[in-house]
Amino acid sequence: MLTILFDGIAYGMLLFILACGLSITLGLMNFVNLAHGAFAMAGGYVTVVLMNRYGIPFYLCLPAAFIATAVIGAALEVTLYRRLYRASHLDQVLFSIGLVFMAIAAADYFMGGQQQLINLPPELRGRLDVFGIGIGRSRLFIIVICAILAVALQLALTRTRFGSQLRAAVDDGRVARGLGINVSTIFVLTFALGSGLAGLGGALGADMLGLDPNFPLKFLIYFMIVVTVGGTSSITGPFIAALLLGIADVAGKYYLPQAGAFIIYAVMILVLILRPNGLFTREGGR
């Protein structure tokens, strides 16, 4: 029972790190980026290639995955995404679906369609036994890393100059520009950060979530649930939503395997009916 809870928390934390970049692009920049999962997949493949082909240790692969996907994200932002911030949602949807399809085909071409396996370092394999509860070491590692990241992210967005500049740029780009804030630099950095976190999540989760070319589509719905259910006004909402989703999904698969992902979709639709702006948004204001 508690093991399931623990696995669920690890899964939820991972989902949060994977999805929080989406929450930023969607909530703050109002861009429907369905291709977010492709960045996570890229991070996963970077890790696989570095570890399996070049024998680079897992711990070094994680920052590498972050940097690689952040760079890809920044490059795409500058060349393509940037021009679509003001486009209709339909255009954004078409564009990002296009990117997903290209990423899937490219992954298939270069890496093949099979599941990728990575060999975690020995200290992350197996289970710890704490008061009779079986705790997967890799799960514990995920929780610790993700918790640190979540706290750092929250602080970065609320306490730093960058965070306040970002909020100003999003609230009113023209005013922010007038104040001497370089809005397009802020957006590139933010986008790169979001993509990088997704890549890091993909690397961390390659073992737990599995990694194959269909990753971006398979997990798209999960990311979107985290963001829509959590709301996009803060990162606490998505965080709680991700935890709930992770626990519910793991528990559902364990106790009601025949229901599959059915429950998750049903819950999402229900939430959207009752609270179209997400569970954890404050209503009112404007």
Binding site: R83, L94, F95, G98, V100, F101, M102, A105, D108
Partner: peptide
């Protein structure tokens, strides 16, 4: 095999 890549490229191109 790579029809999906082309379809994606077409989508991106259309929007851009």
């Amino acid at each position: 095999q790579y029809w999906m890549f082309w379809i994606g490229l077409i989508l991106v191109a259309i929007v851009m």
